[in-house]
Each structure stands twice: as C-alpha cells, then as structure tokens.
Amino acid sequence: MSMRFLERLLRTVMLALAGLVTLSIFASIAAITQGDGGGVPPAGRGSETVEQTAAASVSDEGASGANAERPDARAALGPVQDAEAIAEAAQAARRSDERWPEAIAYALLSVAGLLALGLIALVLAVRQLRRIADALGAGRTGASSLP
C-alpha cells in the first residue's frame, strides 16, 4: 500500500469525522431545545393563571358594586383544575428529563470524534516530521531519501 494512498485515506476519514462532529453538535443542541415550544403556554384552556382569574373576579365584584361575600377565587376554580395543572407540569418535567440523555449521547459522540481527529492529525504530523528528519539526516551523508 502506497504512502500517498494512506495519506489520502486518512484525510478522507478526517473529513468524514469532521462532518460527524458537526452533525452531532447540531443534534445535541436540537435534542436540548426540542419540544418545549419556547416556553409559550398553549392557547385556550390553562393559559390563564390563577392570579389573573382571581383579579378578574375581584374586578367584576367591584364593578357590580355588590358587597355580598363571594367565595375565594382559588376555591371557585376547584381542585380538578389544580390537579390538571400539576399533572401537566409533571409531564413537561418528564419530557425534559427524557431529552437530556439523548443530548449527552450526541455530545459524547462529538467529543469522541474530536479525539479521533486529533489522533489522526498527530499521526500525520509525526509522519511528516519523521520524513523531514530523514531528509535532513540523509542530506548530511550525501544521499537523498525523498521520493
């Protein structure tokens, strides 16, 4: 096997590893940010907070001028809506926890690719330095070993 062929093969492998590292970094970032919708609550049911509902009911009471006592706004919402909100928050946390192992796997793949790239670059550099040293040593004796 020719040395030029080996060099070309190693350079092609380095290009493939560079692409693998780039794609794994992108995949790691995508795995971290996917699925949460940027923190925007869904429209419709549950988009209004308890405090907003309570403030709306207090302003309605003040606008009507009724002095009759009304039940607390949180009690009016009922425990069912509170349980649904807790369940949705737990499910969102679970989805977030499921994303991290995938992101870590992609990040480790990119680190392994970078280490492989560094090792191949080191082998090529040592090989080139050895050729230079051989050429300098042969120059002192009068014979040339360069092709």
Rank of each mutant, 00 (worst) to 15 (best):
S144K: 06
T12R: 13
I86Y: 11
R45D: 13
A125N: 07
L23Q: 08
A125T: 09
V123Y: 01
D134Q: 06
F5N: 00
A103V: 06
S24A: 15
L23V: 02
P101H: 00
I120Y: 00
N67M: 14
A66L: 11
D36A: 04
A107N: 00
A18D: 12
R130D: 05
L17P: 14
E88Y: 01
T12S: 13
A54M: 10
N67A: 12
R74Y: 12
L117H: 03
G65I: 02
A56G: 04
E69V: 14
A16W: 08
A116R: 02
A112E: 00
Q128M: 04
I25S: 03
A125Q: 05
T12A: 14
L122W: 13
L117V: 01
G142K: 05
I86E: 13
R140F: 08
A56S: 08
A63V: 13
A125H: 09
F26V: 13
L146A: 11
R11L: 02
R70K: 15
W100C: 01
S144L: 03
M3L: 08
L108R: 10
V111E: 00
A93S: 09
S110F: 07
I32Q: 06
A68W: 05
T53K: 11
G44I: 03
I86F: 01
R74T: 02
A112L: 13
A85W: 08
S144P: 05
Q91V: 02
V40S: 04
T141I: 03
V126I: 09
R11M: 06
A133R: 14
V50D: 09
L124H: 00
P101G: 00
V40W: 12
N67Y: 11
G113I: 06
L109C: 08
L108Q: 08
R4Q: 10
G37P: 13
W100K: 12
A43T: 12
V21L: 06
A73Y: 01
T33H: 01
G142A: 03
E69H: 12
V50F: 11
W100D: 03
V111A: 07
I132D: 07
M1S: 09
A16D: 05
A135E: 10
V40G: 03
E84Y: 11
D36I: 07
G118A: 04
I32K: 12
L122Q: 02
V111T: 04
R45P: 15
V13Q: 10
S96I: 06
S2T: 14
R8H: 08
G46I: 02
F26W: 10
E48Y: 06
S110L: 01
G35P: 14
